[in-house]
């Protein structure tokens, strides 16, 4: 029972993954891509969680938070880049 549900959930997640990839490729603006990438990251978290259930191993749970953090940093960086044109400023306010 739970097995089927998990498979089903995986399928859903995979479909949404594909959808997001479509958005990444399509765009049209960079912001759209970034949004989709961020969503992909979040989705990856879900998929990893599901996979670790399937594999019945909690070794992969560490990855979840990691992906979360990375996705966050990535998004922040992208946002900054979009807004300021640089990711890391040498000195602000000048």
């Amino acid at each position: 029972m739970i097995d089927i549900m998990i498979r089903l959930a995986l399928v859903f997640c995979s479909i949404s993954m594909l959808g997001l990839i479509y958005r990444v490729i399509k765009g049209p603006s960079v912001a759209d891509r970034v949004i989709a990438l961020d969503a992909i990251g979040v989705n990856l978290v879900a998929i990893t969680a599901l996979i670790s259930i399937v594999l019945n191993s909690h070794a992969f749970l560490e990855i979840i938070l990691l992906i979360g953090i990375l996705a966050f940093i990535g998004t922040v960086a992208f946002a900054k880049y979009l807004e300021k044109g640089v990711i890391i400023e040498r000195e602000r306010n000048h």
Binding site: I73, V76, A77, I88, E89, R90, E91
Partner: peptide, 22 residues
């Protein structure tokens, strides 16, 4: 290794938020 990378990530986040000088 991975721990170090995460710490670096944190500092990078700081860098993004503020700037190198700060």
């Amino acid at each position: 290794f991975i721990g170090g990378l995460m710490t670096a990530g944190a500092i990078v986040l700081l860098l993004i938020t503020y700037d190198i000088k700060t």
